Measured scan of single mutants.
Amino acid sequence: IRLYEREDYRGQMIEFTEDCSCLQDRFRFNEIHSLNVLEGSWVLYELSNYRGRQYLLMPGDYRRYQDWGATNARVGSLRRV
């Protein structure tokens, strides 16, 4: 999964292949505005340590956080399923 700091895949990008319990420890931002799921399925959590609202993401492109059903861009952790 590739996470981007801004909409439309702009700004700083980070790629994950494994679970991350605290996004801010690995990426200086806690807001993700766009992403690409390259393979497999992922769950994004609004808070760190896999807490808060959850969003199940299938392979595909998500140009804005609204595309995955979120009401804001906050992402605290993520897990591959």
Results as ranks from 00 to 15, higher is better:
I1W: 00
I1E: 01
I1M: 08
I1G: 02
I1N: 14
L3R: 00
L3W: 01
L3G: 04
Y4P: 01
Y4V: 00
Y4D: 13
E5G: 08
E5S: 12
E5R: 11
E5N: 05
E5K: 14
E5H: 03
E5W: 15
R6C: 13
R6T: 10
R6L: 10
R6Y: 05
R6V: 08
R6G: 09
E7N: 01
E7A: 09
D8Y: 11
D8V: 07
D8Q: 14
Y9L: 07
Y9M: 13
Y9T: 15
Y9G: 12
Y9R: 15
Y9Q: 13
R10A: 05
G11C: 04
G11L: 02
G11N: 05
G11K: 02
Q12G: 12
Q12R: 07
Q12T: 07
Q12Y: 10
Q12V: 14
M13T: 04
M13V: 11
I14M: 13
I14E: 11
I14F: 10
I14L: 05
I14K: 05
I14C: 09
E15S: 05
E15F: 10
E15M: 09
E15P: 11
F16W: 15
F16E: 08
F16D: 03
T17P: 15
T17C: 10
T17M: 03
T17D: 09
T17Y: 10
T17F: 13
D19F: 10
D19Q: 12
D19E: 11
D19G: 12
D19R: 04
C20N: 12
C20W: 12
C20Y: 15
C20P: 01
C20T: 10
S21A: 08
S21V: 07
S21T: 07
S21F: 10
S21C: 07
C22F: 14
C22V: 06
C22D: 13
L23D: 14
L23R: 02
L23F: 08
Q24P: 11
Q24N: 08
Q24A: 08
Q24H: 13
Q24I: 07
Q24E: 11
Q24R: 10
Q24L: 09
D25E: 13
D25C: 02
D25G: 12
D25K: 14
D25M: 04
R26Q: 11
R26C: 13
R26Y: 14
R26L: 08
R26I: 02
R26D: 07
R26M: 09
F27V: 05
F27K: 09
F27I: 07
R28Y: 09
R28E: 03
R28C: 07
F29D: 10
F29A: 10
F29M: 01
F29R: 14
F29K: 01
N30H: 06
N30C: 03
N30V: 15
N30E: 14
N30Y: 05
N30T: 11
N30W: 07
E31K: 09
E31W: 13
E31N: 10
E31D: 05
I32H: 01
I32S: 09
I32A: 05
I32T: 07
I32D: 02
H33G: 13
H33W: 10
H33F: 08
H33Y: 10
H33T: 06
H33E: 13
H33L: 08
S34G: 05
S34N: 00
S34P: 00
S34A: 14
L35R: 00
L35A: 11
L35V: 12
L35P: 00
L35T: 08
L35I: 15
L35F: 15
L35C: 11
N36E: 11
N36A: 12
N36R: 10
N36D: 07
N36F: 14
N36G: 05
V37M: 02
V37H: 05
V37L: 14
V37T: 13
V37C: 04
V37A: 10
V37W: 00
V37N: 12
L38I: 10
L38C: 05
E39N: 08
E39I: 08
E39C: 03
E39V: 06
E39F: 02
E39H: 15
E39M: 07
G40L: 04
G40W: 06
G40Q: 07
S41P: 03
S41R: 11
S41G: 13
S41Q: 11
S41V: 04
S41N: 03
W42P: 00
W42A: 01
V43T: 05
V43M: 13
V43A: 06
V43K: 04
V43W: 08
V43S: 08
L44H: 01
L44R: 00
L44Q: 01
L44G: 08
Y45W: 06
Y45D: 00
Y45K: 00
Y45E: 00
E46T: 07
E46Y: 01
L47F: 10
L47G: 08
L47M: 03
S48W: 03
S48K: 09
S48Q: 03
S48R: 04
S48Y: 03
S48P: 14
S48L: 03
N49C: 04
N49A: 05
N49L: 12
N49E: 12
N49Y: 08
N49V: 02
N49D: 06
N49K: 05
N49T: 01
Y50D: 01
Y50I: 01
Y50H: 07
Y50C: 01
Y50M: 04
R51I: 02
G52W: 01
G52F: 01
G52R: 01
G52S: 01
R53K: 11
R53T: 10
R53I: 03
R53Q: 13
R53W: 02
Q54K: 07
Q54V: 03
Q54C: 03
Q54P: 07
Y55F: 07
Y55W: 09
Y55K: 13
Y55L: 14
Y55M: 07
L56S: 15
L56G: 10
L56A: 12
L56V: 08
L56H: 14
L56K: 11
L57P: 11
L57M: 11
M58C: 13
M58Y: 15
M58R: 08
M58V: 11
M58G: 14
M58H: 10
M58A: 11
P59R: 05
P59I: 03
P59C: 10
P59K: 04
G60H: 02
G60L: 03
G60D: 06
D61A: 07
D61H: 02
D61W: 02
D61Q: 07
D61Y: 14
D61K: 05
D61E: 12
Y62K: 14
Y62I: 06
Y62N: 04
Y62T: 02
Y62P: 00
R63S: 07
R63M: 14
R63G: 13
R63L: 13
R64F: 12
R64E: 02
R64C: 04
R64P: 01
Y65K: 05
Y65S: 12
Y65W: 10
Y65C: 04
Y65L: 14
Q66W: 10
Q66T: 06
Q66L: 11
D67Y: 04
D67K: 07
D67V: 07
D67L: 06
D67P: 03
D67R: 03
D67Q: 06
W68R: 14
W68N: 04
W68S: 12
W68Q: 02
W68P: 06
W68H: 12
W68L: 15
G69T: 10
G69A: 11
A70T: 14
A70H: 12
A70E: 15
T71C: 10
T71I: 12
T71G: 09
T71M: 04
T71H: 12
N72K: 06
N72F: 14
N72M: 14
N72S: 12
A73C: 10
A73T: 14
A73Q: 13
A73V: 13
A73H: 15
A73D: 14
R74D: 10
R74A: 09
R74L: 09
R74M: 02
R74C: 10
V75D: 00
V75P: 09
V75F: 07
V75S: 03
V75T: 03
V75G: 08
V75Q: 04
G76N: 04
G76Q: 08
G76M: 14
G76A: 10
G76H: 14
G76W: 01
S77V: 00
S77F: 00
S77N: 00
S77G: 02
S77R: 00
L78S: 02
L78Q: 00
L78V: 09
L78M: 14
R79P: 00
R79A: 14
R79T: 04
R79Y: 04
R79D: 01
R79F: 02
R79G: 08
